Each structure stands twice: as C-alpha cells, then as structure tokens.
Amino acid sequence: DTFTFTLDGIEVRLHGASEELIKTIEELLKRDIRWEELEKWIREWEK
C-alpha cells in the first residue's frame, strides 16, 4: 500500500507504510506540523 499526503506543498508517498505509522502521521498533520518536524520524526521512527 502507498500512503500519499501533501505537506508544505510537497507530495509525499510512503510505500509499505504500516497502519500504525499512517495513523501517527495523520495525527501529526492535524497539528499543522512542518516538514522539518515530520522528517525528523520519520528518521526516529526508522531506528
């Protein structure tokens, strides 16, 4: 599955994202998160 969203005018596609990761990103997007914050968060998630 591919999860697609737009952040700061950039279309982002995550391939093979888990349901948990998708739900977490959706929550972060509701908080009007900035790209830099999401990028940092995703790097931490990957560890």
Rank of each mutant, 00 (worst) to 15 (best):
D1Q: 13
D1S: 11
D1P: 09
D1F: 15
D1T: 11
D1V: 13
D1G: 14
T2F: 08
T2Q: 05
T2E: 10
T2K: 04
T2N: 07
T2I: 11
T2M: 07
T2G: 07
T2H: 08
T2D: 13
T2A: 07
F3K: 01
F3T: 01
F3C: 03
F3H: 02
F3M: 02
F3D: 00
F3Y: 15
F3G: 00
T4A: 07
T4R: 04
T4N: 05
T4Y: 09
T4D: 04
T4K: 04
T4I: 13
T4S: 10
F5I: 05
F5T: 01
F5C: 03
F5A: 01
F5N: 00
F5P: 01
F5W: 02
F5D: 00
F5R: 01
F5S: 00
F5H: 01
F5V: 04
F5L: 04
T6H: 07
T6S: 06
T6F: 15
T6A: 04
T6M: 11
T6Y: 13
T6L: 11
T6G: 02
L7T: 02
L7Y: 10
L7I: 15
L7V: 15
L7W: 11
L7S: 03
L7M: 06
L7F: 13
D8S: 03
D8I: 02
D8M: 05
D8N: 06
D8W: 05
D8H: 04
D8Y: 05
D8G: 06
D8E: 08
G9H: 02
G9N: 04
G9L: 04
G9S: 03
G9W: 03
G9R: 01
I10A: 03
I10Q: 09
I10H: 13
I10L: 06
I10C: 13
I10R: 07
I10Y: 10
I10D: 02
I10N: 06
I10M: 09
E11T: 14
E11P: 02
E11L: 06
E11I: 09
E11A: 04
E11G: 01
E11R: 02
E11F: 05
V12Q: 01
V12K: 01
V12I: 13
V12N: 00
V12W: 06
V12E: 01
V12M: 06
V12Y: 15
V12C: 08
V12A: 02
V12S: 01
R13T: 15
R13V: 15
R13Q: 15
R13I: 15
R13Y: 14
R13D: 08
R13K: 15
R13H: 15
R13C: 15
R13M: 14
R13W: 12
R13F: 13
R13A: 13
L14P: 00
L14C: 05
L14T: 01
L14S: 00
L14V: 13
L14Q: 00
L14R: 00
L14W: 05
L14Y: 03
L14E: 00
L14M: 10
H15T: 14
H15K: 09
H15C: 10
H15A: 07
H15R: 07
H15W: 12
H15D: 12
H15I: 15
H15V: 13
H15F: 15
H15Q: 10
G16H: 11
G16L: 07
G16A: 07
G16Y: 08
G16Q: 06
G16I: 04
G16E: 05
G16M: 07
G16C: 08
A17K: 04
A17V: 13
A17E: 02
A17H: 03
A17P: 07
A17L: 09
A17Y: 06
A17T: 03
A17C: 10
A17D: 02
A17G: 04
A17W: 07
S18W: 03
S18E: 04
S18V: 03
S18K: 04
S18Q: 05
S18N: 10
S18D: 09
S18C: 05
E19I: 14
E19L: 15
E19G: 10
E19H: 11
E19T: 14
E19Y: 14
E19V: 15
E19F: 14
E19P: 15
E19S: 12
E19W: 14
E19N: 12
E19R: 11
E20D: 10
E20A: 13
E20C: 08
E20T: 10
E20V: 10
E20F: 13
E20S: 09
E20W: 14
L21Y: 05
L21M: 14
L21R: 03
L21C: 06
L21P: 00
L21T: 12
L21N: 04
L21I: 12
L21K: 03
I22F: 03
I22Y: 03
I22K: 08
I22C: 04
I22T: 04
I22R: 08
I22H: 02
I22D: 00
I22G: 02
K23G: 08
K23V: 07
K23P: 01
K23N: 12
K23H: 11
K23F: 10
K23R: 14
K23W: 09
K23Y: 08
K23Q: 13
K23E: 09
K23M: 11
K23T: 09
T24F: 13
T24N: 15
T24L: 15
T24Q: 14
T24E: 14
T24G: 15
T24H: 12
T24I: 12
T24V: 11
T24R: 14
I25M: 03
I25C: 03
I25L: 08
I25N: 00
I25A: 01
I25K: 00
I25H: 00
I25D: 00
I25G: 00
I25F: 03
I25P: 00
E26L: 15
E26H: 11
E26F: 12
E26A: 09
E26C: 06
E26W: 11
E27A: 12
E27S: 10
E27W: 12
E27M: 15
E27Y: 14
E27K: 10
E27R: 11
E27P: 02
E27G: 10
L28F: 11
L28W: 10
L28D: 00
L28R: 04
L28E: 02
L28I: 07
L28K: 06
L28M: 14
L29R: 03
L29T: 02
L29C: 02
L29I: 12
L29K: 02
L29P: 00
L29N: 01
L29W: 02
L29A: 02
L29Q: 02
L29V: 07
L29E: 00
K30L: 12
K30W: 06
K30H: 07
K30D: 07
K30T: 11
K30G: 05
K30S: 11
K30V: 09
K30P: 02
K30N: 09
K30E: 08
R31M: 11
R31D: 07
R31I: 07
R31G: 13
R31V: 07
R31T: 15
R31K: 13
R31S: 14
D32H: 10
D32P: 08
D32W: 07
D32F: 10
D32C: 09
D32M: 07
D32T: 08
D32A: 10
D32G: 13
D32Q: 10
I33D: 03
I33K: 03
I33T: 06
I33Y: 05
I33M: 07
I33N: 03
I33E: 02
I33V: 11
I33S: 04
I33L: 07
R34C: 04
R34S: 12
R34G: 09
R34I: 08
R34H: 10
R34M: 07
R34W: 04
R34T: 13
W35G: 03
W35P: 03
W35V: 05
W35N: 02
W35R: 04
W35L: 10
W35H: 04
W35S: 03
W35F: 14
E36G: 08
E36D: 13
E36P: 14
E36R: 09
E36T: 13
E36C: 08
E36Q: 12
E36A: 13
E36S: 13
E36F: 12
E36M: 09
E36V: 14
E37V: 09
E37L: 06
E37A: 09
E37W: 09
E37I: 06
E37K: 05
E37H: 07
L38V: 05
L38R: 00
L38I: 05
L38K: 01
L38W: 15
L38T: 00
L38Q: 00
L38A: 03
L38P: 00
L38D: 00
E39C: 14
E39T: 09
E39A: 10
E39I: 15
E39G: 06
E39S: 11
E39W: 15
E39F: 15
E39Y: 15
E39V: 13
K40N: 08
K40I: 11
K40R: 12
K40D: 05
K40P: 11
K40Q: 11
K40L: 12
K40H: 09
K40V: 11
K40Y: 10
W41D: 02
W41M: 11
W41Y: 14
W41I: 12
W41A: 09
W41K: 08
W41F: 14
W41G: 02
I42G: 01
I42W: 06
I42R: 02
I42E: 00
I42M: 09
I42D: 00
R43M: 10
R43I: 10
R43T: 08
R43K: 09
R43L: 10
R43G: 07
R43Y: 09
R43F: 08
E44H: 11
E44R: 05
E44T: 05
E44V: 07
E44K: 06
E44I: 08
E44W: 10
E44D: 11
E44M: 08
E44L: 09
W45H: 07
W45L: 05
W45C: 08
W45T: 03
W45D: 02
W45R: 03
W45G: 03
W45V: 05
E46I: 15
E46K: 07
E46D: 12
E46Q: 14
E46W: 15
E46S: 10
E46R: 06
E46G: 12
E46P: 08
E46M: 15
E46T: 13
E46A: 13
K47T: 13
K47P: 11
K47S: 12
K47V: 13
K47C: 11
K47G: 11
K47N: 13
K47A: 13
